[in-house]
């Protein structure tokens, strides 16, 4: 690979406008990142520090929030605590110093697993169905294609929660309430319309000649689809997957309505952490930080695909 030689273009923005643009971008980034940063920091504060006024920017970091997040504790009298054997682990010691004992692990891990299973499961299904449907709409003469596409889009014309009651009744009737399967199906149904529309645009961009070339070379349409179309569509599939996952990962209203135990995801779970006693903001912030990590990793992983214009220049227009 040789370094590309770039000529000075007349359309190149001036250094002043570049300066203004970078200033605006940086300002915007700071404004959006600041709350996230605050949550991240709060996760490492002690409960008193977290509600101190004026807010503390500099503080002594503590993992109390994380310990509280992963455990259930009960407050005990000093007399009772004195009768117990000395704490075995660093987290027991930390809890003991707050006059409490650990009752057991909290539900955060199973809730987090639920979020992963439901989020990624529904994303996978939505992208699969979306890809197949988009390919069909893009390549075949589907009867009433325009009406069907409009119908698919129309499912997004009101907030999904508007149909909460019928869905609640349906789920109860089918025994899908508070099941992972039910949530996966629900999120898939909501996301498929988005996936079809996004992916149809990407499919339309892929020249038919690619598959046709593969088909005259002896491949069946299905083989051509897997060997030629799918690799070309990676960019679109990655983008669609990110959008679908963000929706399924963050969805709150249906999760509150339809899950309470076995299938509860993180969004309805996090408010429960606040606790009965004092408000445990560090634990909430810790949960939010952990909740944020998978989607961040997923996006960073796929970013390479998003930016890689693999079809660029291969077909002469």
């Amino acid at each position: 690979m040789s370094t590309p030689i770039t000529a000075h273009s007349v359309a190149e923005p001036s250094s002043r406008s570049k300066l203004i643009a970078s200033f605006l971008v940086v300002t915007y980034a700071v404004i959006t990142i600041l709350p996230l940063l605050w949550i991240f920091l709060t996760g490492f504060k002690t409960p008193p520090d977290s509600i101190a006024y004026p807010p503390k920017v500099l503080f002594e970091p503590s993992v109390e929030g994380y310990v509280n997040l992963f455990t259930t504790r009960s407050r005990q009298t000093p007399e009772f605590l004195a009768t117990l054997p000395p704490p075995q682990t660093w987290y027991e010691r930390l809890v003991r110093s707050r006059n409490m004992v650990i009752g057991g692990p909290s539900k955060v891990v199973p809730r987090f697993v639920n979020s992963m299973v439901i989020g990624f499961g529904s994303t996978f299904l939505a992208v699969c169905f979306g890809t197949i449907a988009a390919y069909a709409f893009s390549r075949f003469r589907v009867p009433l294609a325009d009406d069907l596409l409009f119908f698919i889009l129309s499912t997004r014309m009101m907030p999904p929660i508007a149909v909460a009651i019928p869905i609640y009744l349906m789920f109860r009737h089918l025994g899908l309430t508070d099941t992972k399967l039910g949530m996966i199906l629900l999120y898939t149904a909501v996301n498929v319309s988005l996936a079809v529309w996004l992916l149809k645009g990407f499919m339309d961009e892929i020249p038919r000649e690619y598959e046709e070339a593969a088909m005259v070379d002896g491949y069946t349409r299905l083989q051509a689809f897997f060997k030629v179309v799918l690799p070309q569509a990676t960019t679109g599939i990655a983008a669609t997957a990110i959008f679908c996952l963000i929706f399924a990962w963050n969805e709150y209203a249906f999760a509150v309505l339809l899950t309470s135990g076995d299938a509860q995801t993180m969004p309805p779970f996090i408010p429960f952490i606040i606790g009965e006693g004092g408000q445990d903001w560090p634990a909430v912030a810790a949960a939010t930080t952990i909740f944020f990590i998978p989607i961040l990793c997923f996006t960073i992983l796929l970013r390479r695909h998003l930016l890689r214009g693999i079809t660029f220049g291969a077909v002469r227009k």
């Binding site: 000649e209 690619y210 070339a213 070379d217 690799p231 070309q232 660029f312």
Partner: peptide, 15 residues
Amino acid sequence: RDIAFVFQLFALYPH
């Protein structure tokens, strides 16, 4: 059909 087709736009697979 065992026929080869060369397209106007070449249709080389960019990946």
